[in-house]
Amino acid sequence: MIRTAVPDDVPVIHAMVRELAEYEKALHEVRATEEQLRTALFGDHPAAFAHVAEETGEVIGFALWFLNFSTWRGVHGIYLEDLYVRPERRGGGHGKALLTELARICVDRGYERLEWSVLDWNKPSIDFYRSLGATPQDEWTVHRLTDKALTTLAARP
């Protein structure tokens, strides 16, 4: 079952964010707290949204996403920040169901893109995404400013 996340889901979503970061060999980079997630998802001005996969009353996966905008298409799209299904529950169609729900939201709201990033070494995920018809955008490279580089640039006159 796929459903919109509710505030009571925040602790398990936070735990799975950490599990995903550990899988991606980046647990040391996770700074987000449960309270930050709660505010982002359910505060006065939500900046992100989440859906969860539930099986026999237990949350076993999630998709956390936000709106982006294409100046070329002139409409919003969805950027999928994280998709995660606990390893022991993979292969049951939960990841596909989460992506299907996001695709439905796109179509229902007139959004024209559903996008996400995947680590180059994550072959199981790449194969899964390709099986759904997703195409890699090889000609684009993600760039990021964080920490000292971000504050240094912000401090420039």
Rank of each mutant, 00 (worst) to 15 (best):
V12I: 11
Q137D: 13
A155V: 03
I60Y: 09
F128I: 04
A47Q: 14
A155Q: 10
A155D: 13
T135A: 11
P157A: 15
G57L: 14
F66Y: 15
G92V: 07
D147Y: 00
P87L: 13
N122Y: 12
R3V: 09
L80D: 07
F62I: 04
F69T: 09
R109E: 13
V10P: 02
A103K: 07
L67D: 09
I105T: 10
V75G: 05
W116Y: 07
R113D: 10
A63K: 10
Y129P: 04
G57A: 14
S117I: 06
E139H: 14
L41S: 01
Q137A: 11
L37Q: 00
D9I: 03
Q36S: 00
L150R: 00
E115S: 08
D44M: 09
D9A: 02
A53I: 03
A103T: 12
T152G: 13
I78D: 02
L80M: 14
W140A: 03
P46R: 03
E81L: 02
V6Y: 02
E19A: 14
V30D: 00
A63L: 15
A5W: 02
V118Q: 05
I126N: 05
A63C: 09
D8P: 00
A5S: 15
P157L: 15
T71K: 03
P11L: 06
P87G: 09
H45M: 07
T39W: 01
T141Y: 02
D147S: 10
L150A: 12
E88F: 03
F62L: 05
A15Y: 04
I105G: 05
S125T: 15
P136L: 07
L27A: 14
L41R: 01
P46L: 02
F62M: 14
D147N: 10
E101I: 04
R38K: 07
F69N: 04
C106I: 05
A53K: 03
D147G: 02
R73P: 02
G91M: 12
T4K: 11
E22M: 10
G43I: 05
W121L: 08
V17K: 00
W140M: 07
L145F: 12
A21N: 03
L114K: 09
R89N: 12
V59F: 13
D44E: 13
E54F: 06
E115Y: 02
A63V: 08
L132M: 15
D9R: 01
R109P: 03
